Amino acid sequence: MEVRTIKVFTTVDNINLHTQVVDMSMTYGQQFGPTYLDGADVTKIKPHNSHEGKTFYVLPNDDTLRVEAFEYYHTTDPSFLGRYMSALNHTKKWKYPQVNGLTSIKWADNNCYLATALLTLQQIELKFNPPALQDAYYRARAGEAANFCALILAYCNKTVGELGDVRETMSYLFQHANLDSCKRVLNVVCKTCGQQQTTLKGVEAVMYMGTLSYEQFKKGVQIPCTCGKQATKYLVQQESPFVMMSAPPAQYELKHGTFTCASEYTGNYQCGHYKHITSKETLYCIDGALLTKSSEYKGPITDVFYKENSYTTTIK
């Protein structure tokens, strides 16, 4: 009895394709271990004539594949690729409408935090270190965002349907971005203890939790000093293409032309909904596939993004 075979390709990165001759009487799992086709788990399936010449994702289970996976995804987590594939199996079914010149995501599976993050990423200057993220990001900007969303979920250790947080998501993504040249110098002034300067680099240099107003941050924000008295913390120097200011959701007025974009969060910790506000020729609110415009805006804002380049204080 002759062994019926077909020729397929296996890959971990969709760049390096490895030619395989597979036995049609055995499952993919018996031949390769966990195997995925377009995100779908085909591990328990036997090869079919229609699979001839198709590319299958496999887990990096030998040295060659491990090197290829690390170079593309910059992670050695053995569960990463499987999590990416199972997320992709959902995100490829989502709709990605162009809204006001940006790629958004039609609401499904509690994905409003991903839509808000995706919209924000198209408006701030950011370059990702893992080629996987950078490639998928370019495709997302062009309207094909399924891979990018699935990668975000995998890097953030999230599953489809789980509630997510924009600030946490951005923080994970910033860790995989090139923020080497970003720098922030802060000064804390206390009447009792004097003053202390701190220099922050990388992710810490672009994120701040405690106030939404970048102007206020430049002037000074009140913080408790270690001595128990009130101290003032203010920005001395900022070198970065953008800054992200966050605070627990509270009524906040966004003035046209003073910011790049913002995240609105309605609801409580267990259950809520994100919308995205962007400042173009007027203010726009993007909620999944829905767009509304207004000249002014007041609502429960939790993150505001500002364009920056270089700032030095005039406070002496």
Rank of each mutant, 00 (worst) to 15 (best):
Y311W: 14
L133W: 02
C271A: 13
D180S: 11
I15K: 15
G29K: 08
Y265V: 00
F242Y: 02
M24D: 14
H256Y: 08
V42N: 06
F56I: 08
K201C: 09
P130G: 03
Y36G: 05
F259M: 02
H51T: 07
A117G: 00
T27V: 12
Y84R: 03
A87Q: 14
H90I: 12
K201E: 11
N100H: 08
M26D: 06
N129W: 14
N61G: 10
F217Y: 04
S104A: 10
D165I: 02
N268V: 00
K7E: 12
F305M: 00
K275Y: 00
L186Y: 15
I15H: 15
C182R: 08
V203Y: 14
M1I: 03
Y73W: 05
P78H: 09
P130E: 00
H48M: 13
T198H: 12
I152W: 00
H176C: 06
G39T: 12
A205I: 01
I277L: 03
E264S: 07
S295G: 10
L290R: 11
L212I: 01
L59D: 12
P241L: 02
D109W: 05
K93V: 11
A250L: 09
Y208A: 07
G202W: 02
P47E: 04
K46R: 13
P300R: 09
T5F: 14
Y311Q: 05
V58R: 08
Y269E: 13
F70R: 09
I15P: 01
V185L: 06
Q20R: 15
A140V: 13
V42Q: 13
P78V: 09
K106Y: 12
T5Y: 09
L133M: 07
Q238V: 01
A262K: 00
K95C: 13
Q98M: 15
I124T: 03
Y208I: 04
A40C: 15
K92Q: 12
L118S: 01
A146H: 07
A115W: 00
E253W: 00
T64G: 12
S310M: 14
N187C: 14
L235I: 07
A289H: 15
K95V: 15
Q237P: 02
L153N: 00
S86H: 09
L37C: 11
L121G: 04
M207D: 05
A154W: 07
G29L: 08
L126D: 03
C156K: 01
P47I: 03
L121H: 04
V99S: 07
T258S: 08
R66N: 11
Y137M: 15
Y172A: 15
N14V: 09
L102F: 09
L65P: 01
L17N: 08
G143W: 00
M245S: 04
M209A: 15
T35W: 00
L235R: 01
D38P: 06
M170W: 03
S246T: 02
F217M: 07
T302A: 03
